[in-house]
Nucleic acid binder design. Structure first.
Lengths: 213, 213
DNA sequence: GCAAAAGTGTTTCAATTACACCCATGT
DNA sequence: ACATGGGTGTAATTGAAACACTTTTGC
């Protein structure tokens, strides 16, 4: 008698929203309340079984649309978890993590049993999902320092300060505006659009965009 | 009617051996000749179906022992591949990569239909395994620059030159011995054992070991 | 004019690189 | 003694960090 191994795809979805207490931008993520055993009633990462006709990334996208109604601006495989003690029945989870833009985020329509939490303050989750969230956070915070993923949180056009605020929110640090500006503009792919952001109560900052090579 | 999704674990196994032409140390990996369709007769990464009672990493270890007869000094998950066009039947592969020590490597007994190849000169492989090997090589070469995995290629005790030769072999570069030495010894976890390597035709180099914290 | 953030300049400090030179051993 | 790699010293270059200062807008 052969035991069946379940194959599921889950996604850690990050968005930037103001922290309920401090008001400063922080990472949030949506969780889904389980309506079945095991872990009935507990919060868990959105996900579902892998459909035979569906790509791994496509499956993550489907989950993302179902829970947030949005397209991810960044989607990346995180890790595959297959410990034999993760769940009463053997299940291997391929986990993705995704970033969604705050401007689109406003348009988000949460599905049933979906609720957003501050990423660093999630409750006790089902399965090993607390470990997974922690791992995803570490990866995001590491990767933003050496890659372009911060732009997945900005619009097409952005000011240097907006980009800096993304870094500050994700990494939970304060960065020197002058030095950040220089280091950012050292990247030749970041070019000024010529336009400026208006409506600020001070000097209007220049708008830039990321050249797609 | 439900289509079954196969779940397999494959491993890219690296060892350092002298290059057949240049004689300098290079990365090698073992491949297995397929004895079944699809891709019958083609070389492929060692691997097999995931057993219900087996951990993902344990499955990789089993494969490693079967093909090389050795224990890995380093084993790490690489990526999971699940494209719907990878194979006629739908198969999701969770791929690991492993490093084995050269001293142990000498003890290796190759299984049937197993042959070692220079990692940068592998033939046309089955499935998408050429892509996977390339990806594993990139990861290894990137990771050796910021982590301790080089030690997975040295013995318990090592000279600074031996460690440098590992870096040079993996990254295919020449490194300044003086600077490499300083940067290496800047790591407080690398401590002298007090012993020296004898039998060289020149000044006997000091032996070090990596403190396990 | 004043506040506030944009944007520029400058000084300091640490890390990397290149390379000259001395040391200890086998032959 | 001399060839060879081990090991040390040091000047030049680069980049990160800290911070003073000027600019441009809304009010």
């Amino acid at each position: 008698m052969e035991q069946r191994i379940e194959l599921a795809v889950s996604t850690v979805i990050f968005a930037l929203r103001p922290h309920p207490v401090s008001g400063r931008d922080t990472l949030w993520l949506p969780l889904v309340r389980r309506i079945r055993e095991p872990f009935l009633g507990r919060w868990a990462l959105p996900g579902g079984p892998l459909e035979p006709a569906e790509d791994l990334a496509a499956s993550a996208r489907t989950t993302l649309r179902r829970t947030t109604g949005l397209e991810p601006s960044h989607l990346e495989q995180l890790y595959s978890f297959g410990g034999i003690d993760r769940s009463p029945d053997r299940v291997v989870s391929i986990v993705y993590w995704a970033l969604v833009r705050p401007d689109e985020d406003a348009r988000a329509i949460d599905g049933e049993n979906v609720e957003w939490f501050v990423a660093d303050e999630v409750p006790d989750l089902a399965f090993d999902h607390n470990d997974i969230v922690e791992y995803a956070l570490r990866r995001l915070r590491a990767k933003i320092t050496y890659s372009d993923i911060a732009h997945a949180f900005t619009g097409e056009e952005f000011t240097i300060a907006q980009l800096r605020e993304v870094h500050e929110a994700v990494r939970q640090v304060r960065l020197d505006p002058a030095n950040f500006r220089r280091q950012t503009l050292a990247n030749p792919r970041i070019v000024p659009t010529g336009r400026h952001l208006t409506g600020t109560s001070h000097r209007p900052p220049a708008l830039y965009r990321l050249e797609t090579p």
